[in-house]
Design a protein around this nucleic acid. Sequence first.
RNA 1: GGCGCCGUACCCAAGUGGUAAGGGAGCAGUCUGCAAAACUGCGAUGCAGCGGUUCGAACCCGCUCGGCGCCUCCA
Length: 529
Amino acid sequence: MLKIYNTLTGKKEPFEPIAPKTVRMYVCGVTVYDYCHIGHARSALVFDVLRRYLEYSGYAVTFVKNFTDVDDKIIKRAHEQGVSCDAVTAKYIQAYHEDMGKLGIRTATEEPKATEHIADIIQLTERLVAKGLAYVVAGDVYFEVSKYPEYGRLSKRRLEDLQAGARVEVDERKHHAMDFALWKSSKPGEPTWESPWGPGRPGWHIECSAMSMKHLGETFDIHGGGMDLIFPHHENEIAQSCGVTGKEFARYWIHNGFVQINKEKMSKSLGNFFTIREIFEKSEWPENVTGEILRYFLLSTHYHGPLDFSDQALREAKNALNGFYDLFQRLDEPEEKATADNELRVMIEKCRLAFKTAMADDLNTPVAIAAFQALKGDVNRLLAHGLSTAARKVAREEFRSLGSTLGLFQLNKWKLGSTGMLSRAASKDTERQFGPSIGMLNQAANKPQSEQNVGFLNQPAEKDIVAHNAQPTIEDQALTDVEIERMLEERNNARRRKDFSRADVIRQSLAAHGIIIEDKPDGTTRWKR
RNA sequence: GGCGCCGUACCCAAGUGGUAAGGGAGCAGUCUGCAAAACUGCGAUGCAGCGGUUCGAACCCGCUCGGCGCCUCCA
């Protein structure tokens, strides 16, 4: 049974859905006026994993995630670029799907847009006005916070504690400084819809209430989003929704922590954010590998806490993942000995139990990953004793199926691939240039921490290198599999006649192309990019 | 001014009353022509500091120091 931390109650609680075996959840998506950064990725991933886990646990999940596609920032961006708001939102919605897709984040059951729910929003606003919870001022409609006595129960604030106008001037026409707009009369050049209060557009908070109620009903199971949405966004949603229906809105409120840079929240104003596509562009590794590294990194900390993004953190995730995929490569090799086949079952059972226990405890993904690490060690030991081809397949499948809840271990090939993309001539810094391949060959690559962060944090320099990478030189062409096999054959011939210097030359030559080799006890050699 | 979070080994990170998971890096050993990988071993007598409660505290309470978030749009 899943226990989950509920912001509303401030406690970890057993999860009980309203209707048996089904879960209805709503997560606040993004405002589509720019590319998503790694913080958006974390939020999307956390709820993607929650959804996968609920499905794994046997629930039928209806998952709704919205796009806010009408908003001040969108209007501003459209004006800046001299294009329509629709053009802006369409561009960034597509980018959202591309970026999240690379991270293996599944699309939600429903992904409603605010602009497609104007009628629902107007209707909900009318009901609030009719109930006396909202008032109209010259074409604007405001929710009257003092009419909802429980205002502040999610964010644990009292109305009196909210310092009115602390940083923003209070609109004189509002009854209370915290009253918020449900409907805004539109200025010329802004998107506009007809309404009982005149032409205008919806406020931010009301759209989520309207869309969630439409797709999930007036009361549903889970409402999620980033920590920063607790106040005022989710607080306001509760006030509107509960105010209008008189029922509870969502039962479990789940919030993920921030991604930080050097212990500070990633934000546009600080200029310390990294977009998802920027990370993929700068990555030294192929796209599918980068996606999994990012996923592993984001899940290696509990979703509720803060998470510091750095180049080094990504490298550690990559190194940890290396161990798994090295094992998977061994598991793909045939073997007749079956000495340890029976023990494998026990190890797998142990892992399953540990995985389930960890995930059921407030989605403890770091502990779940630790369970995989334990199984990795176990299987490696059993492998030394002898696991049959069939048993190896079973083990690999176990990683794949259990890992699918976290979206890990799904790749067939783990290529770190120095595919010749990196131009030697353009580099003044060999270590950075060749990244993982050189790093792994040179175990001495133990630099002071100050240098380890340069990759992603030093934007200008890195951008230069990316630019150079676009023009690979001829000598950097990747080797074909056939060529590699031929070189390995020659090397093994050399080894057999004890011509080790020749063998080492070939090994170095392969290494220069990013090929890592490993001699097996039987005299053959396995390799990887 | 109000509300709240965090501080665990070189780094990352679980653990929230019963005597410190896991990973990365490092060192040593086994194996290997040498590597690589894998395996084995080493590594916090201590969880920011100081008091208190308790048979027992990293976990509860108080104070102090340090870092951060929200109260405005924000995943």
